[in-house]
Design a binder for these strands. Structure first.
Lengths: 337, 337
DNA sequence: TTGTAAGCGTTATCAA
DNA sequence: TTGATAACGCTTACAA
């Protein structure tokens, strides 16, 4: 193993000087810096992370506490993960996955073990017990999501209330007089803000705009539920129903089922989904969508976390991203004609 | 922070004794052990991982080098990941994700930094440069996949050649005289063994059984390609075509497209897919499938890695799991009648 | 069966 | 601007 001492010997300086150079202190003269860097390159030196951490520095790991189980909608999780990994990488540290199922214990464990510098917390609940524990642990932490619990942890989220309003507005624009919200069975409106926005704020907004609405929950990727919705719609044609879908997990099957039932999206019936742009574009009928900006969300969260770690500035307590509707064929023009 | 010294003080023993107890030495008397464990519980002591690693012990991290990008089929990756996380958890260590795109550099970095105890290597190529580098790094490593490169690293994989044969056999059983293999565009038969099994061994086996075959590549989850296959099939009814699908990524859309084209699976046309059992079962027509045992595969790999880390036994060099076909409605009886 | 003491590679403090 | 030295918390010979 190449140590700082080896580098120091080769460069003809002391271990301390090497440490200064590595950590970017500017108390070192340029020539010395160059000397040291040359030796670092030559020997292929990489600081030993455990040693660095033990000596009080940073470990170079950030934890990502996220629930991954069979009900996980991986299509939604993936952009978060990949964006976190990429950004973390560019900060020269690594990602540790902490299974969200373990709750606060899993987080406490890695924290006590001194293995993570900071935490990205997913699956935030409207009431979330973990938050106060984390605060008392003094662990730099950014939430991705929205809570109603009082907390001083900074958070990043997408404005789901706005998303739902945009969906409804666009459906009404093409003539809908009744909205059907379709979501996963696993979305708990009592626990998750996005589910609440969809199942409570959505219908409320419909009422305020003078139209009726109802909500259907579908078991993840299962055909039966989807077909039952579609066949119902079949009989509702006269009622000018518009569809608002919350998750890509069911979108493609839904659109497939529509086709099978000879319902043409954007003509017989309008539909607006919450999903990534490319996913919406790739459907047989391109779907008007609102991209939930998962990557931007996570990217922001990571950067806030790093700004906390570097301790320079006070982080913004709440960052709310507002995504915008992208109109495509499924609401291109007046429907029900 | 609770240190081993604190525990020692409370338990009335020395730091050393605490260390022995924690690390499961059996040189310590039962009563002392109990004393110590009581103190550990009471204080909520967790060993400081950096310190432990620095002192020569294990870091408690295993790296998972896996490519995650926009072409990643998350449906296939997920069971691997979740099974690794769960099993790693039970070995009291954590998972670090190493972006596979970085190639050997990413792995070298974490290794030089002394942050991982072992490595699970995914996306193994038939020719894979990384293997020799990893061997020379003396990093305990288990491959998940199959290579043709010479290496002493142990590997775990599923017998894809057998999978393809089982698919073909079942299709022939119900009357197919021509097989269409359908796969992702991104599957590179020159690089990945599973792709090769499908695009080379499969057609070869068809020939040996006296029937013809062809292969179609579909861009991930894109309708256009899928519909072109389905509409082709429409015109081929007389030719007794059977469908073999390699990845769940396109299965549900394929079956949806079949319905839309009024082709009834298991009656007009038989189909056998490689996908998880529950996924096959959840299709509108339950699909005869071969579960690629992703979770068993990863579980085995993790356990082999830990047996290497504990240094007890020489690991088995190659573990090949053979999955079995589960017959469902899509090949329940003679087709084309 | 338990304790003493050396060392792991780094950073931080302080002196030169 | 640089160098010596003391932590950091743990493991592991070796001694008792």
């Amino acid at each position: 193993m190449v140590t700082a001492q080896d580098v120091a010997d080769l460069a003809g300086v002391s271990r301390t000087t090497v440490s200064y150079v590595i950590n970017g202190s500017n108390l070192i003269s340029e020539p010395t810096k160059k000397q040291v860097m040359k030796a670092v390159k030559k020997l292929g030196y990489h600081p030993n992370l455990p040693a660095r951490a033990l000596a009080g520095g940073k470990m170079g790991f950030i934890g990502v506490a996220v629930r991954i189980d069979s009900s996980t909608n991986i299509v939604e999780l993936y952009p978060h993960l990949s964006s976190i990994i990429a950004e973390t990488e560019s900060h020269n540290s690594n990602v540790i996955l902490i299974p969200g199922q373990e709750g606060i214990e899993g987080i406490e464990k890695v924290t006590r073990q001194a293995t993570i510098d900071g935490l990205l917390l997913f699956d935030i609940g409207l009431k979330d017990d973990r938050l106060s524990s984390i605060e008392s642990m003094n662990l730099p932490c950014v939430m991705v999501g929205t809570t109603e619990s009082t907390t001083t942890l900074p958070s990043v989220d997408v404005d789901y209330a706005s998303i739902v309003r945009q969906q409804i507005d666009d459906l009404i624009r093409v003539g809908s007089q009744e909205i059907i919200f379709v979501d996963n069975k696993s979305s708990d409106a009592n626990y998750y803000n996005f589910a609440k926005a969809f199942s409570i704020d959505g219908p409320r907004y419909c009422t305020s705009r003078g139209i009726s609405s109802s909500t259907r929950y579908i078991e993840n990727r299962h055909w039966q539920g989807i077909e039952s919705v579609t066949s119902d719609i079949q009989t509702w044609k006269g009622r000018k129903v518009g569809i608002a879908i919350r998750t890509p997990a069911i979108l493609d099957l839904m659109t497939a089922s529509m086709r099978f039932n000879n319902l043409e999206l954007g003509k017989d019936i309008p539909l607006v989904a919450v999903c990534a742009d490319d996913f919406a574009q790739a459907q047989p009928t391109p779907i008007t969508n609102i991209d939930p900006l998962a990557d931007a969300c996570s990217l922001t969260a990571v950067n806030i976390l790093y700004s906390m770690l570097s301790g320079k500035e006070q982080p913004q307590l709440r960052t709310l991203l507002t995504p915008h509707l992208q109109r495509r064929k499924s609401t291109a023009s007046k429907c029900y004609q």
